[in-house]
Structures are given as structure tokens and as C-alpha cells.
Simulated assay, not measured.
Amino acid sequence: MKSQSSFEVKPLGERDWPVLKSLVDRVWPVTFKDILSEEQIAYMMEFMYSTASLKKQVETGSRFYILYEAAEPIGYLALIPNYRNEKLTKEGSWMKVDKLYVMPENHGTGAGRFLMDFAFAEANKENVQGVMLNVNRDNKAVKFYEYYGFKTAYSGDFDIGKGYLMQDYIMVYPFKE
């Protein structure tokens, strides 16, 4: 594992959109190629990961960050502060890790842990119940989240249009019980 001091997280700036889009285009299809059909990947890339969609996510409160190693972009993170989930708590909110992706060649280097540590540091600045996320039930990242201490709260099938579902676990790391 590399020294975590070799990683740096920077908030997304206006000039960083092409960097983010390049990371998304390289990471996301590879991550899901064994889980989703090519047609669903193409649909989701347009629906959720087009530049217009990503910018709309920022406009509605998502915070995007890019992970660098030696000035090279190797991953990205999106957080949604004060996220409400009625199934988890009737009152209070969560810090939602909405996106956390690292280039496949950087898996196992501590880069994902570095991003998650950053997400927790951001969550600790807010008055939230804890950190939560959705992850595809067949994604290898489930093991990473479990290792980090997340527990599965429930699972769900979420309709995203055109007959496609996101079949996710909703995982939580509560700060307070």
C-alpha cells in the first residue's frame, strides 16, 4: 500500500469538468462491465454521468472531489450533505457517499480508503446521523465497505427508467445509535 500522504483530494472547480468527465468515462464502464449490460451502461452514462447531469447534481447540492496522486487524477468522490432517508431515520440526515471510484490500476493502493477517510472527515463537520451509501449488490466494492465498517441497512430495486433497475444495498455507518 502506498503512503496516504502521496494522495491529495481537491474540490471540483469549473476548469476540472473535463478531468472529472474523463475519469468517469474511464472508470465507470470498467467497474460495471461484468454486472450490467452494455445497453444499461450506455443509458446510465448518459442519464447519470453526462456533463449536463453531473453539473445538475452540483447545482442541487452534490459536492464533487477529484483524487490526485503525484498531480495525476486517479479517482473521484461525490458527497451529498444533509441527505434524508426516511427508511433509516424519521428525523436527522446523513452524509451520503454518492460516488466513490478509483481507477482500476489504483485499486489496493489505499486510494479508496483515502477517499473514504476524506468523506468521513467532511461528515464529521456536519451534524449528521452518520455516513450512508448505495452500492450495487454485485459490486466487489461491497467487501470494501464492509471492511471499512459499513453495515447493510436494507436492499432495494430502484427504477431509473427504460426498464432498468439499480439493484443496491443501502449501507450505513452510524455515528449515533
Rank of each mutant, 00 (worst) to 15 (best):
D98T: 09
S22W: 06
W28S: 08
F158W: 11
V142F: 09
Y169S: 11
V135W: 04
T89L: 08
F47T: 09
S37L: 11
M116T: 03
E86Y: 07
D159K: 01
F7S: 03
M166S: 10
T109G: 10
Y147H: 15
F64A: 07
S6K: 14
V24W: 01
W94S: 07
I170T: 15
F32H: 12
K10I: 06
L88C: 05
D157F: 04
N85S: 05
F7E: 02
A141F: 09
K96V: 02
E69A: 13
P73C: 09
R84D: 06
M44N: 06
E59D: 15
K162V: 03
S50Q: 10
Q129E: 15
T60D: 11
T31L: 01
H107R: 14
Y101N: 01
T109I: 02
E38H: 05
Q167M: 11
L165Q: 09
D138Y: 12
E46W: 00
V19H: 04
Q129H: 13
L133D: 08
P104M: 06
N106D: 11
G110Q: 03
A111G: 09
A111C: 05
K125E: 12
G75A: 01
G110S: 07
T51C: 10
S93D: 07
Q4T: 10
K125A: 03
E39V: 01
L67W: 04
Y145E: 05
A141G: 10
Q4A: 13
F64T: 04
A111K: 02
S50E: 09
E91R: 07
I160Y: 01
Q129I: 15
K33V: 14
E105R: 12
Y169E: 13
A70L: 14
P81N: 14
K99E: 00
Y83K: 07
I160N: 00
Y145C: 05
L36F: 12
Q40I: 00
E105L: 08
E59G: 15
